[in-house]
């Protein structure tokens, strides 16, 4: 069974080769670190103080995640998830996919696994970008030392995990939307609409009910109503489970499959 699923995954993975979703993952992950690197190089008089500061990595991580958690990550997930399912609609390939000898459950899970792995890829690239933004200036400027501060691998892994969990509900709901609608603009519009709503409701005490802002909540360390700390992750995971189940049943029981 696992082998069969692996074949389904390999097939799905190949489908997105050279697709807009692939390029977006790469560009989206590296954009903020690239801007950060450029900013550090342009403001080179700050470099020495920064690189000798014990808080360099924390500062870089915070600055990069600020734009990422609030805006880039939700928007990236909305776009990439919609694009991955759109590959089938745009190329008229659902009918070919659904006449291959594989359980529909595998098609559903393999396609989702692709989006999930792309998200992991995104996180890895983003962190490599942050690391490069921290290290690279020392190569350009001879009198600038490499960062004194040790790379806080544990803390960074912990923070990444938090942001990853906070991103899961968006991924789940966008996956549902993108499988259901042939017109690419609908999942995109719904995603952007919910994202804007979540931004408006960010400081509302029930703002956590809109999962598109979980990343921003996590970043800001907001206290919203009774829901704080670990409870937010629980909300994220519950939302994710609900969206995935709904998405699965809507996909499986769809009357027309091509």
């Amino acid at each position: 069974m696992l082998r069969l699923f692996l074949h389904s995954f390999q097939s799905e993975w190949l489908k997105k080769k050279r697709s807009a979703a692939s390029w977006l993952t790469l560009a989206g992950a590296l954009l903020i670190p690239a801007i950060m690197l450029a900013a550090r190089i342009i403001e080179s008089d700050q470099l020495y103080a920064d690189n000798t500061s014990p808080k360099l990595w924390k500062m870089l991580f915070r600055d990069c995640w600020q734009g990422m958690a609030v805006f880039m990550l939700p928007m990236g997930i909305i776009l990439v998830t919609s694009l991955v399912a759109q590959l089938e609609y745009r190329n008229n390939t659902w009918k070919q996919t659904h006449t291959t000898p594989q359980p529909l459950t595998f098609v559903f899970l393999a396609k989702f696994a692709v989006v999930l792995v792309m998200l992991v890829q995104f996180f890895i690239l983003f962190n490599i970008g942050i690391f490069v933004a921290g290290m690279l200036p020392a190569l350009f400027f001879p009198d600038i030392p490499f960062p004194y501060a040790a790379y806080p691998i544990k803390a960074i892994l912990r923070e990444n995990t938090s942001f990853f969990i906070a991103a899961l509900p968006i991924l789940g709901l966008q996956y549902l939307f993108s499988l259901q609608f042939k017109n690419f603009l609908i999942p995109l519009g719904l995603g952007i609409g919910l994202f804007v709503a979540s931004m408006i409701a960010l400081s509302w005490k029930y703002g956590f009910l809109i999962p598109y802002a979980h990343g921003a909540h996590h970043f800001s360390g907001y206290s919203y109503g009774q829901v704080v700390g670990k409870e937010m992750y629980l909300y994220s995971l519950i939302y994710f489970a609900i969206f995935m189940l709904a998405s699965y049943f809507m996909y499986i029981y769809r009357k027309s499959k091509g």
């Binding site: 074949h7 389904s8 390999q10 097939s11 190949l14 489908k15 080769k17 050279r18 697709s19 590959l87 745009r90 190329n91 008229n92 390939t93 009918k95 070919q96 006449t99 291959t100 000898p101 594989q102 091509g258």
Partner: peptide, 23 residues
């Protein structure tokens, strides 16, 4: 069925490879 089902950004070989993985 009806119109061709092809991934437009892939080559002919890659399009076939997508299904070769399944079969």
């Amino acid at each position: 069925i009806e119109t061709p089902s092809l991934y437009s950004q892939l080559t002919a070989y890659e399009n076939l490879a997508v299904w070769q993985k399944i079969y």
